[in-house]
Design a binder for these strands. Sequence first.
RNA 1: GCGGAAAUAGCUCAGCUGGUAGAGCAUCAGUUUCCCAAACUGAAGGCCGCGGGUUCGAAUCCCGUUUUCCGCUCCA
Length: 494
Amino acid sequence: MSNSTDELFKNVISHAKEYGFVFQSSEIYDGLSAVYDYGQNGVELKNNIKTYWWKSMVQMHDNIVGIDSAIFMHPTIWKASGHVDGFSDPMIDNKVSKKRYRADQLLEDKIAAYDTEGKTDKAELLQTEMDTALKNEDLPRLRELIIAHEIADPNSKDKPDWTEVRQFNLMFSTQVGAIAGESETIYLRPETAQGIFVNYLNVQKSGRMKIPFGIAQIGKAFRNEVVARQFIIRMREFEQMEMQYFVRPGTQKDWFNKWKETRLKWHLALGTPEEKYRYHEHVKLAHYADAAFDIEFDFPFGFKEVEGIHSRTDFDLSQHEQFSRKKMQYFDPEVDPETGKPFGNYIPYVIETSIGLDRMFLLTMINAFEEEDLSTEERQDSRTVLRLHPCLAPVKAAIFPLTKKDGLPEKATEIMDKLKVNFNLQYEEKDAIGKRYRRQDAIGTPFCITVDHQSLEDNTVTIRHRDTMAQERVNADDLEKIIGDLVSWKNLLG
RNA sequence: GCGGAAAUAGCUCAGCUGGUAGAGCAUCAGUUUCCCAAACUGAAGGCCGCGGGUUCGAAUCCCGUUUUCCGCUCCA
């Protein structure tokens, strides 16, 4: 990471805090690691990103509908999805080499080594001891075994100094039921997708949906990351915008490619330079996928995943059919042109598009942030401006009386009252006009409307544009249409 | 989780080898100002991250702890 990009990232973080976008959670109690709060401007920007996504996915597709499933779900769902068994690993560190390993894998390797050496008795004994320890979640015993069998650090020749074995759990658990002892352990969802899968037939039947169709959802998910860092890139509590698209088996490849392209277009429509984005293909696929691409963004610290497009096959629905013993099949009455018969009953294949809202938020801030040098020969000058797309900007317009006397504030307030039904506005009368322009630049407000003495005479005002700093004089009665056109979703979705 | 660095006013930072806590910006009350920040007057704001120790005396030295940043590690 070069110094300048390092600086950029730091500046964006402090800007985000200073102007009410993102605060550290529980800051007055020294904070809570990897948890963040969105402030007064952050929540507006975040909501606007959600709206853009929801409109483009749900409103613009007549075969995609949304749901809002609960964060609490039946614990068996996470057994079916593979999260319970797949994400609770015993971890151990070597203090000498500073490397971290999975304790069970170190032991497995040792067992394999015993086998190749022909010491099958030793191998079998260790296998049994390890299985017992794992089953009983006896973490100290795992450490004992590692030390007793003098397991070396695979990446270091020095004698290892092992830490305690710690359990790494992906999921947060909590109790349902008011009475201790009679309660049941459930999990905070680690992904929103399962809420869609377990509801897919409810939606399909109540909405009379025909394949192919999609179900969209925006919601919080929770993951206990080993190391959560880099600001809001990796948070313990985060928000996803997911859409699961249910398709006829055999057609998944086409739909996968279609969504891959559609989703990148969604990103680029915001005006982000194309070279900032790239696809990353997963070579090693997760157990449920038959194809997977990430859309990555060029963050100051390198390309990182923002969105994943995964072909999840029929894995999840099949798992739920098995675990719930309820049919997850869809009856497809359409006639297969090849056989002349209906497609009939099948478990649909699923294409998933899943975007991290918090990462999208950060990406948007980084992309928009600019420290512009406005120096002339006479004097130095600069401004910090967030060049947010007008549709995403937290405040659409600010209204200023040029001075706070001579009836200008009254006139400005009157204009504001007419417009605030349709737009999120700010009114400011304090400080020099230039200072107020700069403050609005800093939070990305695309337009500033200034009321001056001429306004009192002919009802005209000036509109000052954030990006060019150019001004034009317009009639105050036309503002609703002018601003409405400039911030219209048509500009993004049309 | 390991190693390194940092933590002083809302923000950016001074504060030397221990001796009663400082500036600029921001904030608030005024003045000035007819279109692009940092003009004038005044006010307010800090248990120097938290806890302990050394000392007559600690923002300053030592230990612990929390948080953040960087590197490693981990990552569906």
